[in-house]
Design a protein around this nucleic acid. Structure first.
Lengths: 216, 216
DNA sequence: ACCTGAACACCGTTCAAGT
DNA sequence: ACCTGAACACCGTTCAAGT
């Protein structure tokens, strides 16, 4: 068997990588998927991208900056899911609020490692990323808008909307983190998947904040 | 100035450390206090305990086992705080439940790094520690007992006690983690300390689960 | 029994030198 | 401009050798 025909104009390992920055982010996401965010190594991301150990530092000042770029990509995907869920939700404030929470939990369950990067403030530099800060601000604003509208309609069991919003976020973030941190081995209900338990718990919280069973 | 007088019977760096195991746990706690759990290094713990880099592996099979021992010590202190809070609480189920949550939040705020070790399932081997598993089981049982008693008294806004307990834990764990993960920079309320915001939010949650303002 | 200290296979980061 | 590859100061872990 003779030598293979060369692919036409095959770039024979060019000295310059096409888009090393994007390749490093993709490689890091792959590692995260396989072994978790803490296991991401600049050296391995470089190896997977086919470059030397020092090359990444041309594009990121340090490992944290690389992880922040990874978090931005994860957040972009998260946001897309949130937007889709909201677009599909009915036009009633509390139903929209509920849909927001469900999308959040669903995302965390299906993308545990991405969720981890996003909330791993010890691996990323949150404040240095305009995208991360702005995007989170917007999500907070969506929650706020839904809650304020619900309050205007007289659908909330409390007038303290500000702390209610924090309680709701704490509940949803707490559930997601309990799942990610492995607490459901102890906290889960027998015969109920973690996903179902989380959805039920969020549903109960929604009932409480509405001051009674839905449709009251 | 002549040589110092020797301390009487000064053990001149004995070859055998008195209790290296305890010394390593203490050294790790000190490092955690200074730089966080992820920064604990077996080598530095060894150095602080005054032994060589390989010595710790006589007492712990690996870094995770050391961190698990550290988590056990942190959990012991946490449990002491919980017990004290419960002992001081009035004899009314919901008040006791509330006190439990407040003690949890107070502990997390005052001992953020210890809280981190306890919930850092990626640094410790939770299941291998009978102390950790048993202690958490007991705390869950305390929550359960208070909630069931409250339900018997007709003080709960829902009959789904099981999911209510999970919601309560998610709320409190979520608040603690938001604090530890630095989310209060965005989620905090202007002119209110994080501690106050967390207490207010827990208070609101307690009102919701009781189906109205306290004493209804 | 317990500890030392060299060794191994890793890290993140820097930097002169190459293309 | 971008990448290489050696170098430095670190890791966790092992293990023969010391006490």
């Amino acid at each position: 068997m003779p030598t293979r025909p060369a692919r036409r104009q095959a770039p024979p390992k060019p000295y310059h990588h096409g888009d090393l920055r994007a390749a490093l982010v993709a490689a890091s996401l792959a590692i995260i998927e396989e072994r978790g965010p803490e296991q991401v190594t600049v050296r391995e991301a470089a190896k997977r991208a086919g470059v030397s150990s020092g090359a990444p530092f041309r594009h990121f000042p340090n490992r944290t900056a690389l992880m922040t770029a990874v978090a931005e990509e994860a957040q972009r995907r998260f946001r897309a899911e949130i937007d889709a869920a909201l677009a599909a939700a009915p036009n009633e404030p509390l139903a929209r609020f509920h849909a927001l929470g469900e999308a959040y939990l669903r995302w965390a369950i299906r993308n545990p490692s991405h969720f981890r990067v996003i909330s791993a403030r010890n691996l990323i530099d949150y404040d240095s990323s305009p995208y991360l800060t702005r995007d989170n601000d917007e999500i907070r604003a969506m929650m706020s808008a839904a809650l304020i509208a619900a309050a205007r309609n007289g659908n909330l069991a409390t007038s303290d909307v500000a702390h209610l919003q924090i309680a709701a976020r704490a509940c949803v973030y707490g559930l997601a983190r309990m799942y990610i941190d492995g607490h459901f081995a102890q906290w889960g209900r027998a015969g109920e998947t973690a996903e179902a338990t989380m959805a039920q718990t969020l549903g109960l919280f929604m009932e409480l904040l509405a001051g009674g069973p839905a449709g009251e």
